[in-house]
Amino acid sequence: MLEPSNKIQDSLRVIEQAPSLLKLTEAFRSAVDDYGYESFLCSAPPRPGEEGIDPVLFGAWPEDWRQRYTERRYYVRDPMLQELYRTADAFTWRTILNSRRYSEADRKIVFDAAAWGMREGFVIPLYGIGGQVHAITMAGPTPRIDSEARSELLLMSIYAYGRAKRLAGRQLDPVPLLKPREREALQWVAAGKGDWEIGQIMGISESAAHKHVENAKRKIGVSTRVQAVVEAIRTGQLHL
């Protein structure tokens, strides 16, 4: 039997030496499993109210829950996301469910996750260079959330994040997030429409349509409309 502090150091060593994201996921899974967490996700979540995809670094997260979450646009009101962008410190789901800051309707999103065995969870905000925010969320039916467990999970999560960032290399530059109107306008650009037509279809002026497309180009960092469409498809923000 290992001393608790040796066990942490052991887990940290395996995490830090993981040769691939797949191995890292395995190492992290076995580390958090000891605390009763069955699901976990390390991603760069959208800010509340923002549309967009959620670039995942690593995770073992119920796929149909993720689908339901996206389809129902839970990310717009999810109290966990709101809390994440309000604090630098880790927090448990229970704290949020007990807080009066969030409405009954918002908190229902969290209760909804229980059907996937996620009744309690722990969320760790991770601030990278340039203010880029990632988070590790872990959840389970009855996981440990005592102070000692939280400290140990925090440490392992930070190192798993650090390792994942190195393994993912530079490909994971933050994806520029398009607003719904910008996406819609790009959708019509892809269909071969001009500004005037797009304005007619979207019920806005020609110049407003033009502005949406130009904003999308600027965010994506390209100079032509075709490039904007291609990049938006590549990053999963536009589907043809």
Binding site: I8, L12, A88, L126, S151, L155, I158, Y159, Y161, R166
Partner: peptide, 26 residues
Amino acid sequence: TFFLPRVLDAGIEIKPLGIPTPYDEG
């Protein structure tokens, strides 16, 4: 502790000498 991810993200090697310990808010 919240300083650590930033250092790791920069690719700087930093080793923990213990586990995070609560003080004040963080």
